[in-house]
């Protein structure tokens, strides 16, 4: 065979092989991508997450791809330190997660996508060898035996916003006040209970409220308040209002739905549960202990628009939100 002929034969063979091999390679690479399906996000009314159950293994990086079918959504895993992923229609966002502990995690939507935004949740099942069992203590409202749904109105309210700075001065001046400065005391008592405890102290009413404000300020920090405020703005303000007065952008919708619901038929109290709580109402806020508020946040409103946050936020985050809620009642400025 002459050299050019050999070359031609080789070229033709290579081309023919390529024609078969290239599509085969493309097909195989498409098949191998099937392990990473595209997760579609849509508003809760049209189905929420699809799929809403994701499997993962401990220690193995989990690569996730998202897109949105309608409006802007977000993705984050509850109780996990991670940067939330924004999910926009027409775009694909990606993230990689690695789990260190097996268990069932909740993932949720992080950008408000309507009144039922909080219903957009899914589960992430992480399998693996169980590590040493952890002791789980029940929430404080359980050990205290608090009824989360009972009305909690303060008997007395201050005439004006009590100043924590002035109360701090009183705390330092008078040594034998009948109050405890520990976190346990703060968490298990409502401001109005502490106000009652101070009735034997010989202080005036406004001074007693100032001591209460000082105790509340002592159990938080500017950094904690800032974190609580950020969580509040992102997750609570749409219903409870940016100023905490229960008049957020969804408040009217919630009230309308509450009136239409079956619960409204059994009395006015049930109906009022459908409107978001106002944190600027001193009677309601000063009558609630941090433990009671923690219970309400952990468990949610059951039948109202209030979601359960227990699987989303860590204990510390919830305590910070609670500290922030009291800042609508107390003047923490120096």
């Amino acid at each position: 065979m002459k050299r050019p002929e050999l070359l031609t034969r080789l070229l033709i063979t290579a081309t023919l092989l390529g024609v078969v091999a290239l599509p085969l390679w493309a097909w195989v690479s498409v098949l191998s991508n099937v392990e990473e399906p595209l997760i579609h996000a849509s508003i809760a009314e049209s189905g929420g997450w699809s799929p809403d159950v994701i499997q993962a293994k401990v220690g193995e990086p989990l690569h996730l791809k998202f897109t949105s079918d309608d409006v802007m959504h977000g993705f984050a895993v509850g109780q996990m330190e991670m940067q939330p992923v924004d999910i926009e229609p027409g775009k694909v966002s990606e993230t990689t997660l690695t789990f260190t502990k097996p268990g069932i995690y909740t993932f949720f939507c992080t950008r408000w996508c309507g009144i039922n935004h909080w219903r957009m949740r899914g589960t992430l099942e992480v399998s693996g060898e169980p590590t040493a069992p952890e002791t789980v203590s029940p929430a404080l409202y359980v050990t205290l035996g608090l009824n989360l749904d009972a009305p909690h109105l303060a008997d007395a309210v201050p005439a004006e916003k009590p100043s924590a700075a002035r109360g701090m001065g009183l705390l330092h001046q008078i040594s034998n006040l009948p109050v405890d400065q520990s976190a346990d005391y703060y968490r298990s008592h409502s401001p109005s209970q502490v106000f009652q405890d101070l009735s034997t102290s010989g202080l005036t009413d406004s001074q007693r409220w100032e001591v209460v404000a000082a105790l509340w300020a002592q159990n938080t920090s500017p950094a904690a308040l800032a974190e609580g405020g950020e969580i509040y703005a992102q997750n609570c303000a749409a219903c409870h209002g940016e100023t905490g007065s229960g008049n957020g952008v969804f408040a009217d919708d919630l009230a309308a739905r509450g009136e239409a619901s079956m619960q409204a038929m059994s009395g006015s109290m049930d109906m009022s549960m459908q409107t978001p709580a106002s944190f600027s109402d001193p009677q309601r806020m000063l009558g609630a202990s941090p433990a009671l508020l923690q219970g309400k946040i952990l468990r949610g409103g059951m039948g109202t628009g209030m979601p359960m946050w227990g699987s989303i936020f860590t204990d510390e985050q919830i305590w910070n939100v609670i500290a922030y809620l009291y800042s609508f009642q107390f003047d923490y400025s120096k």
Binding site: V71, M72, W112, V249
Partner: peptide, 14 residues
């Protein structure tokens, strides 16, 4: 020449 300040309030989605 006016300084325009717009407060944008969203009432349903982003």
């Amino acid at each position: 020449g006016d300084t325009v300040k717009i407060h944008l309030v969203s009432t349903d989605v982003v």
